[in-house]
Design a protein around this nucleic acid. Structure first.
Length: 465
DNA sequence: TTTTGAGTTGTTCGA
DNA sequence: GTCGAACAACTCAAA
């Protein structure tokens, strides 16, 4: 065919892009298109920070396209209308796009495919949801068997090189990419750094990952999630890097690091598959018997949690890291989520939505899976009696309070032994370390021991159902 | 069909 | 301070 549209969605990359490769194989001219749906942009789930990151990534993609003799057409509107218009203008015979398995995306793509020639190509995951099934064809609902099945599939081949040239049809007008807000958040995750960061991580930190990933005060995680969220890196590029690292791993500890990181990639695909097979998890608990937990849902406590003034330093640091940077350490996510759901007894869906509004990497599948795991309502959930103790977690994974003090400067002068429980300082100490509890830094809004017992009691609903 | 082993990330209590 | 058990059964996956 002469012309095809490459419809860009969650694959903002030229390297290892199977949809783009397929389009190039089949057509002489490719028109790269991004459709900005005003309804999606206005949705409370969209998240301003993530939009800013998206626009920065689009700008970078545009630059990459320019260097290959192409360009990016951005249009606003309903995808089916925009694409129909572009087919008229260009005479394109087919639209190629990377398959996206979320409920919203599937609905959107069905709408488009109803009237337009759309080809979906895998690439969002290493193994798409329909490829990892039990022998009887049913989906897995427990991670470990899922991961065994995932690993038993052929390992992905070498990622595709970015095409050197992408011939484009001439002169199709588009709009300018909107300016990213000036909060500078995208600067922390520059698009141009994505591949380099993956390479660096998979040559160094990945070997200590099994241990260091839990430390909030260390830079031990890969911090690649925003890139994977928008397909600036492909899952296959990540898995390939892990496979190479495994080959070079010098000892069992290093191999364990690689395995642990690969497992995280599999977790991502597990939750993508769960949301694909069980789209109702978006609205309700996966486990039916835990749909009637008597939440307290106190609005003032919810505000305190969001703003990082619960009086528990680790929780507050986590929440401030989120609002300030659009990213949160995974260990911190669990601690903050556990505190909201268990200590405050606030519906996990409130937390899920708040995270979606602030996370650069906010993804409906992973975010939902994580929240339901913490709440104990999901597939493969943590036992209900597993309630994180914010003080113990802090001591264990931020032993000197470095993480806490970075985001909660009120505690800057507090000695290590009190940094995770500053309310235990005497009045004299509070004065000495210039941190008056209730004045400079809030007193705990709940007493953990009491809140824990309250949560365990509330979770007994399942016995009544 | 039945049986069996296992299940991301914790905390608390008592010896 | 350290260690093991209890926390609660239940469901899933696989033999």
């Amino acid at each position: 065919m002469d012309t095809a549209i490459w419809w860009v969605r969650r694959d903002l990359r030229l390297g290892d892009n199977q949809a783009l490769a397929e389009a190039l194989l089949r057509a002489r001219h490719i028109l790269p298109v991004f459709v900005l749906d005003p309804q999606v942009v206005a949705s409370p789930w969209a998240g301003e920070k993530r939009l800013g990151f998206l626009f920065a990534a689009l700008r970078s993609l545009e630059a990459d396209l320019h260097s290959r003799g192409s360009y990016l057409v951005l249009r606003r509107g309903k995808p089916e209308q925009v694409l129909a218009g572009l087919i008229q203008e260009t005479g394109a015979e087919r639209i190629f796009a990377e398959a996206d398995h979320s409920p919203y995306a599937r609905h959107r793509d069905e709408q488009v495919a109803r009237s337009l020639p759309l080809s979906l190509v895998d690439g969002l995951t290493v193994n798409p949801p329909h490829a990892v099934l039990k022998p009887d064809g049913a989906p897995y609902t427990v991670f470990t068997p899922f991961s065994r099945a995932w690993r038993s599939l052929p390992f992905p081949g070498r990622p595709l090189e970015a095409p050197r040239e992408i011939p484009a049809p001439a002169g199709i007008p588009g709009e300018n990419i909107p300016d990213a807000p000036k909060h500078g958040l995208a600067d922390m995750f520059p698009t141009s750094e994505a591949v380099r960061r993956l390479e660096r991580f998979s040559k160094e930190k990945i070997f200590q990952y099994a241990e260091s990933r839990n430390r909030m005060d260390l830079d031990g995680t890969s911090a690649l999630s925003p890139y994977l969220r928008f397909g600036i890196l492909s899952a296959r590029q990540a898995a390939w890097a892990a496979q190479e690292a495994e080959f070079f791993a010098p000892d069992p500890t290093s191999r364990q690091g690689v395995e642990t990181w690969l497992n995280e990639l599999i977790w991502r695909e597990f939750y993508i598959a769960i949301l694909y097979h069980f789209p109702n998890v978006r609205m309700e608990s996966f486990r039916a018997e835990l749909r009637n937990i008597p939440w307290r849902n106190d609005p003032a406590e919810f505000e305190a949690w969001k703003e990082g003034r619960t009086g528990y330093p680790v929780v507050d640091a986590a929440m401030r890291q989120l609002s300030q940077t659009g990213w949160m350490h995974n260990r911190a996510r669990m601690i903050a989520a556990s505190f909201l759901v268990k200590d405050l007894l606030i519906d996990w869906r409130w937390g899920e939505k708040h995270f979606m509004q602030h996370l650069l990497d906010g993804d409906p599948a992973a975010n939902n899976g994580g929240w339901q795991w913490t709440a104990g309502t999901g597939t493969d959930a943590a036992p209900y009696f597993r309630v994180f103790n914010p003080v113990l977690q802090g001591r264990k994974f931020d032993p000197l309070g470095v993480y806490v003090k970075h985001y909660v400067p009120e505690l800057a002068n507090v000695p290590d032994e009190y940094v995770h429980e500053p309310w235990k300082m005497s009045i004299e100490q509070q004065r000495q370390f210039r941190c008056m509890i209730g004045v400079d830094y809030p007193a705990p809004i709940v007493e953990h021991v009491v809140a824990r017992a309250r949560a365990l009691d509330a979770y007994k609903v399942k016995e009544k159902v």
